[in-house]
Nucleic acid binder design. Sequence first.
DNA 1: CTTTAACCCTGGAGGC
DNA 2: TGCCTCCAGGGTTAAA
Length: 275
Amino acid sequence: MPELPEVETTRRGIDAVATGHTLKRMIVHEPRMRWPIPKDLPGLVSGHVVRACRRRGKYLLIEFDHGTQLIHLGMSGSLRSVLHGELLRKHDHVEWQFEHVTLRLHDPRRFGSVLWHPINAGPIEHHPLISKLGIEPFDPDFDAKWLKKGFAGRKMSIKQALLAGDVVVGAGNIYASESLFRACIHPKTQASRVSLARCERLVIALQSTLHDALQSGGSTLRDYVNATGEAGAYFTLHAAVYERDGQPCRNCATPIKRIVQGQRATYFCPRCQKV
DNA sequence: CTTTAACCCTGGAGGC
DNA sequence: TGCCTCCAGGGTTAAA
């Protein structure tokens, strides 16, 4: 599942090959994604120069002079660059052909999306899918006070609040569990009851978890492939708790527990992590 | 306002 | 070997 490190790794990959280059042709093989890919999108962007490849949360933002393409990888999506003429694989739904290289969006589950936001519709920050996103975890303004304020009045668990992404983005299901373990916070703790000191620990934990994942190539998913087409080194994050239920905690040897919160699996150490 | 559950989809795993 | 069922998950949306 592409989380922030995977998306950032992808962004760097496509930035290197696309920015400053003319998109010769965009081809949609399968428009049925999370939302239908607009029929007129290929005609709108083909022949235009890519000005920048940015990221906001898990959204990739491909900027042109006349608008921005929003790409989300969902949970099974990947973007890779291929040489011209390489056979189309099953689930290769969209391709962007540049002069020397082609980018292909591969997404078996089709939870991903490709959308268009014209420049005359206002700044991309106002797009309904972007405007409600929380702060970037590496934004200088992101600190314990920000978390405390964001979690105020929230009766849901800290795990679910973290996952919601409207306070801070970047923690998907894997890194939410991992970050809470690093911060020694029990996932069931009510969000509003997390103290400032523990928020401070969580800030550090989240940043270090994401940083470590990014360093290892942003690879947490079995079939994750980065934007240059190299297979990522799988599970290099060396998960402390994720999918380790029943196995000994790396810190205290207590068996890791698996619970379900909001229909999602959560993993934690019942001894190291306190409410 | 906050919170919860359903939904989109396919591949993989396990049962028989 | 094959068929069936169940499950995973990001994130939006409708409903409570």
